[in-house]
Design a binder for these strands. Structure first.
Lengths: 197, 197
DNA sequence: CCGGTTTTATGATCTCGATCATATCTTCTC
DNA sequence: GAGAAGATATGATCGAGATCATAAAACCGG
């Protein structure tokens, strides 16, 4: 997260999006740095028959879409507003200028990329070789830890079954059945349809 | 890739590994920065029943295992020498010192992370929702482009079918059948068992 | 609080890639 | 150049998760 004033001082604009709007699409060149000011943005892919895969969900303070900016490649996924949202937008040049003039911010960004790489390394391994229940527990535990929640059944997963499916590469029905099975095994609790862990 | 002398000036040691040696394991804390001097290193995971997933293969000049260093997390995968190899090794503190005293190197590392994130975003989406042939073509095209090869059937894929399987989350037999099918379709050529694209 | 949308739920069936078994071809080693 | 180890090849069978169909519960905007 980059300080709001620092962003504005470097020329950032606050842009407003409505739920469902696309900010950019897979295959486009990256021209801007983005940081969420309010609401939620997801990055996703669709395969030929419309199946969605969610690369990540970003909320207040989180930036997204930087890698293509830094690696000079095309966007590997779309960005779409999950809810109405406001986003700080900074041009590529301004962003790079900010980085070079501000080593601490640069290090922070590097750290963010490193964390995301860690998440992706976990997910790609899980998706490639683990069973549905394992994958689901893994992502829940990851999110719980990210949100610094501790203690049994104190973390409430704030995702729909469909989102959980799209994050783990499964189908809704499979996620529903797997979470129920996990509840039976005492791995999670389900209260009012919400998953606790 | 960080300049060899710069690494040595900051206290790097050159360490020798034999084929099959493990440099670190999944779950361990990250204490060192690594850059390949010769040979090849792979990072991988094994699931409960021994199935391997290869996160990446690194050869001369490429660094690996930095994310946990920067994100302060445990290694998400093992590192293993594919062939006899030499590796520059630099302690975490020395590495961070190098970064802060050398903005250009820092930017280079950030760029490396961004590229790797791009690769992972592609792979995780492919593995989660694409068919074997699609996945295989995608990784071949990715490698071809990385190696800056152009022209039809000029790029020779230097991976065994097993490695290709472990990179794409498939089984050898499936990769063998899929590459043959791709050959029939004219998407790749197979000469002396090597795949060309 | 009503009608519509979204989300969760559950049974039945199907399909693609995994698994198993076995063989051949190639490369490496002594 | 014989024998072992590694890599590629190919057919047969199986099974987990996808797919299809349908329903009910929860939520939401006017």
């Amino acid at each position: 997260m980059i300080d709001e004033n620092l962003l504005l001082n470097h020329g950032a604009r606050k842009v407003v999006f409505s739920k469902g709007d696309q900010l950019f699409r897979e295959g486009e060149s990256a021209n801007n740095f983005y940081q969420v000011a309010s609401g939620e943005i997801k990055m996703n892919n669709y395969n030929e028959d419309g199946k969605e895969f969610i690369q990540g969900i970003f909320s207040i303070g989180q930036s997204f879409g930087e890698p293509p900016l830094l690696a000079n490649v095309k966007y590997p996924a779309n960005a779409e507003a999950i809810s109405d949202a406001e986003v700080f937008q900074l041009s590529k040049d301004q962003f790079l200028e900010l980085l070079s003039s501000n080593p601490k911010v640069h290090l922070k960004i590097t750290e963010t990329l490193a964390k995301r790489l860690h998440y992706k390394a976990i997910m790609v391994s899980e998706i490639s070789s683990q069973e549905p229940e394992h994958r689901i527990l893994r992502i829940i535990d990851y999110l719980k830890q990210i949100n610094k929640v501790e203690g049994k059944f104190t973390y409430r997963l704030d995702l729909t079954r469909q989102q959980l499916a799209d994050l783990t590469g499964l189908r809704v029905e499979t996620v529903i059945r797997a979470t129920k099975s996990l509840e039976k095994k005492g791995e999670v609790q389900i209260k009012k349809r919400k998953v606790f862990r």
